[in-house]
Amino acid sequence: MLLEQLINGITLGSIYAIVALGFTLVFGVLGIINMAHGEIFMVGAFVGVMTTGVLGWPLWLAFAASIVVTSILGYLLERMTLRPLRGKKGVSHLAPLISTIGVSILLENLSHHIFGAGNKPFRTEFAEISIEIGQVTVYIVQIVIFAISIILMIGLSIWLSKTKAGKALRATAENLETASILGVDTKKIITLTVIIASAMGGIAGILVGMAFNSVSPQMGLAIGLKGLAIIILGGMGNVKGAMVGGLLLGLSETFLVAYGDSGYRDAIAFIMIILILLLRPQGIFGSKMAEGR
């Protein structure tokens, strides 16, 4: 069913977009790729599983808990791994890459240790409820995921363009030195960026848990790599690019599984980026966060 696949694709795509936004915010402001983002997202998903499954909390409270935990992780990430590298002489662009890979290894194995290796189901009270519109079946979960993603994306865009902090963030993204001369507390903005990106990862974690009904320590890597592919696709540090890239990937994956060879599903993201890098290295939407919005 074409329409159903379209809905599936958009649902998946909007989750990807949220993951990619986390990468893109950090890249836009700090110019580094946060390799630990996928794992922060995975921790967020586990917080969701634990709070709803074990503690029996309602979903909204699970979201809140996940946001709190991942924000704290984001803060720690910035304070303990990123800040020590900033402005230090002789630090190449490899250092933050390796450092955040270190955090990702740490988090993945820590989760492995605490929660075990297997998949954990993510049950929501409305998981099985669907509505029929004509011949199309739409699950409530899909609507919830889509709605939350859209709200998040719109919220972020408004926050970036309208609020003082958002504008300061954009200024910092454009040029750190200029921003600090103009009186922006760049240290605070950077910390804020990493925290917001991580919190979005936490939300995305719960959304993925709901969509796939399963959570595992390895999911951070699988989804994280796709998030990376998306930001290349859409243009590094570009908010709109992350959204469009996410949707594009979600749709192509869904349609490949439905009408083609599902085995290559996980390769599409990378085939797409290899193509885009060859044809248009700056991504679909330019290169600067400030330009393409």
Partner: peptide, 17 residues
């Protein structure tokens, strides 16, 4: 592997090259 991860973070902070 947990130790491995922590070690990488510390190394990069102390001796990024």
């Amino acid at each position: 592997y947990i130790i491995y991860g922590i070690m990488l973070v510390i190394l990069m902070a102390v001796r990024p090259q």
